[in-house]
Nucleic acid binder design. Structure first.
Lengths: 347, 347
DNA sequence: ATGAAAGCGCTAACAT
DNA sequence: ATGTTAGCGCTTTCAT
């Protein structure tokens, strides 16, 4: 089954139509110098007339660049991720490249596979949000000298550009705010404690608590799905009740909110809460949710920008580690009265 | 700046290593028949030894298939869309293809551009969620004989596979439910009335109202952003107050919810509401939101499946028009008491 | 300023 | 069962 109509005009057809050589046509196509304006015009006219479209596969084959970048993420449908994808795609477009999207589904071996596939597609570069991050899954890219940028989480043992948010500072800020309300027994709920983001956020929380001479208390589960309503009920109904909760990501927030409703605990009044990750309905909830917003789009944009810089200028620059600030969206669930304010952490 | 290390082994290297001809190596690579098991094994060993990876660009160039599909959507970050992308990507992976993701940003001319770019990448097929849908933007694909499937909205004047949801039935079901509560003055709020989805949903609402001998009443704006709190306040504070509201998409729901809160109208009690599109926090809101859920993932999966069928078997099948059922998620905002139930419309 | 010829890495006839 | 010979559509030496 041949789909690509064989009759699509090639550069040879254009050259013939314009009565020039193949190379001249190629020169015009690539805006190379040293071409007579009149000739260039003839070629362009021919291109238009034949409605010529260069075959990018053929261009890529010749070695230079495929004008393609790859992006591997754990979950395409995650709002944080999809916002980043959107931004990265826009940058790619500006740079006249296309974006091949792949999903690791949070699985490291799948991630490895996708990475290999992308490499065999000759992508010019790769943006990766590591499924795990404790092992390097991009050795083949590094070996091939194709740029990679890690995004949201760093990748161990890889000398690559990395862009994250200030997770620790964000957790510190959230914790400090909760402390400023006078809460002492603050519980932090997290999942997948091996993950970089979890570790960092936990560290920000714990150090802040210790500085206030308070005991950090955490509920950590292996996977988000382990966070059953029963478990939450059990933990929250200990003898000394917690005075506030900090949830370490959006999925957890969802599950906690769900569980709290089931057991009849009113968020904000009965139990103040601050969440990592913003939601579309977060400020329509009652109480509205005080959250740490991550700059998803900017993260994606920046990742793509770093990548393209690296693609143009491979060796010269040493690996860069960038972090972006989160935004603390002060709403009601932390115990504050309704009146929207937002504070950006400045680290 | 050459990135693709020129020293990546090629099939020629593999052939040499295995002491066979290029073609034999190619045969093994493609699992073609008529090859001695011993030879095949030698070749595979050589591949492993050299850690050979086929160059997909070169394979694609030769004409057959690029093992690439394209997907053009209005907004990558839209939860409905990103869920569909996720599913489509998974199917592509199963079919050993990759997914190039492009965004039209809701703009028809940008959509045309992206479509052209994809064609020049020799994609084997295209999934498109038309930005507008009133004009065909995929003529070049049709001319080239490359399969296209329209997704979420049909594309005018294009004889292509199309997959949508039962918009009209969904709106009818929502309206009927509102009527069953005894509400008579039901306002429907929509945007971009030229869009297929809006037209269909409006039709479902209007016909249901008429069948009940009631007057359909609508607030329709050109773009979602025109839906200011002032406008909503003005419309809702007419002399004869509305008894319920139906919002025609998620963005509108957000804006209405926001506006309602600003003007102090309590959703559900003061003003019952049913929304198109589900939200992550919809059932944690109080009242929780009764919504029409669209099967986003299934839509994406089905679109990809249709596309791959078409890729394998281009001409034989006539264009197919598929629709999937929505799910009416009965929660509280319609005026129902809390007790989760869900009903699927069966059309 | 323009052109001829040689591939990029692979698959596809057509041998043998 | 295996090999030889041509290209795919483009870019790139190296001429002129």
């Amino acid at each position: 089954m041949i789909h690509h109509a064989k009759d699509r005009p090639t550069l040879v057809d254009v050259a013939r139509e314009a009565k020039v050589s193949l190379k001249t046509a190629s020169r015009v196509l690539n805006d190379e110098p040293n071409i007579a304006p009149a000739t260039a015009k003839r070629v362009r006219t021919a291109m238009l007339k034949l409605s010529y479209r260069p075959n990018e596969l053929a261009r890529g084959l010749k070695g230079r660049r495929s004008a393609t970048i790859g992006m591997v993420v754990p979950n395409v449908a995650d709002p944080f991720i999809s916002s980043a994808i959107k931004a990265a795609q826009e940058i790619a477009r500006q740079r006249r490249s296309v974006l091949i999207l792949a999903s690791s589904d949070g699985d490291e071996s799948l991630e490895r596979e996708e990475v290999e596939i992308l490499l065999s597609r000759q992508v010019d570069g790769l943006i990766i949000a590591p499924a795990d991050g404790r092992h390097c899954t991009v050795d083949s890219f590094i070996a091939a000298g194709v740029p990679v940028v890690a995004f949201d989480r760093p990748m161990q043992n890889a000398e690559i550009d990395t862009i994250t948010v200030f997770n620790e500072a964000a957790a510190r800020e959230a914790t400090e705010h909760l402390l400023s309300h006078g809460y002492r027994r603050i519980l932090t709920i997290g999942a997948r404690p091996e993950l970089y983001t979890c570790i960092e956020r936990l560290a920000g929380y714990a150090s802040t608590m210790k500085r206030a001479k308070l005991k950090p208390e955490t509920l950590l589960v292996a996977r988000e799905s382990d966070l059953t309503p029963e478990l939450i009920r059990k933990v929250l109904s200990g003898k000394k009740p917690y005075e506030a909760v900090l949830t370490l990501n959006g999925v957890i927030t969802m599950m906690v909110l769900q569980a709290l409703r089931e057991i009849g605990v009113q968020v904000g009044t009965d139990l103040p809460l601050v969440s990592f990750d913003d939601f579309r309905l977060a400020d329509v909830l009652s109480p509205s949710l005080t959250v740490v917003r991550q700059p998803a789009e900017e993260l994606g944009r920046k990742a793509a920008q770093l990548l393209f810089e690296r693609i143009q200028d491979s060796k010269t620059i040493p690996p860069r580690k960038l972090s972006l600030s989160t935004t603390f969206l002060l709403r009601e669930s932390c115990g504050c009265a309704r009146e929207s304010t937002s504070i950006t952490n400045l680290e």
